Computed example of a mutant assay.
Amino acid sequence: MDKIEALLRQMRQTFLNEMGERCDRLEQKVIELERSPDDREVFEELYRGVHSLKGSGGTHGLHIITSICHQLENHLTEAAETCNFRSTCISKALAYFDLLRKVQHVAGEDEPDYAALEAELERLREPKEQRLIQVLMAEPSNIMRQVLNKALTDQPVQVAMVDDGIAAIELLMRQKFDIAVLARELVRLNGVAVVAAIRASKGRNANIPFILLTSNPETVPLNVTIDRVLPRDKHLMVEVLQTLTGMTGSQTDI
């Protein structure tokens, strides 16, 4: 029995190790659908891949993966029936794969706690009219990230947090956002460089609003389009919330 249990654990770990690559391949199919929404072959390859991942998750006792994939299958089916592979649908599909990657990390812990992931999955189930505003927050300070995240807790937003410029670019190239809030003083690549790169990329986030948080009085280069620059002072939290309200049209209570 010990040998069988060890073998099952090994098979489960192998599945988790390979899940990131499987998600990468399926994500590419989603991107292809955004470009060619009528390509039935691509859709069927995507759907089969998600269905296979769902079955594998159940086999290895990872029911959170089964739940995510089941919900994603429903989302893809609805989109196919309504011919609605536009940006909001694509963004939501990619959000499911981001959630699967989080499962990959949590499942490797000694005592996995999936409560936060289940709550995130429930939010993805919300109807379109209740869609959360997707915000990218790039901030190197752990304390400031916690403060910003807490300030937005009760707001109709879903925040993705990163701590450096390269990570911000990678996420902006992969996932659709409604708005991005970047610290100017980021690790590896500063906020101005991130905005310049994304604007030049002509990708899905090239035209979204960008807010720059800075303690640097140096002016932003004129060739980099930043929608608002906010100083790091005692009014920063209020300014961030008010700016998000103005740019997204949400009813934010300060």
Results as ranks from 00 to 15, higher is better:
K29N: 11
E45W: 07
N207C: 06
Q104N: 14
C89K: 06
V240Y: 05
A167S: 15
L121Q: 09
C69I: 03
L33D: 07
E18L: 09
L117W: 05
T245G: 15
T245I: 05
R131G: 11
P217F: 02
F177L: 01
I133C: 11
R25S: 12
K150P: 00
T225N: 07
G57H: 04
G108A: 03
G203C: 03
D253G: 05
T88I: 09
A180W: 00
M247A: 07
L26W: 04
I133Q: 06
Q28P: 02
P112N: 06
M1C: 10
A180N: 00
L117R: 04
K92D: 08
A107H: 02
L152T: 05
G203T: 02
P209G: 03
E118H: 13
P231T: 02
L72I: 03
R25N: 12
E170I: 06
N17D: 14
Y47R: 15
T248M: 07
M144V: 11
A115Q: 14
N216W: 03
E18W: 03
H105Q: 15
T214E: 00
H60M: 13
V50F: 08
Q242Y: 09
E21G: 12
E34S: 13
C83Q: 15
K102H: 10
E73R: 01
M1Q: 13
Q155M: 11
T248L: 05
K176R: 14
L117S: 04
S91C: 12
A115E: 14
V220F: 00
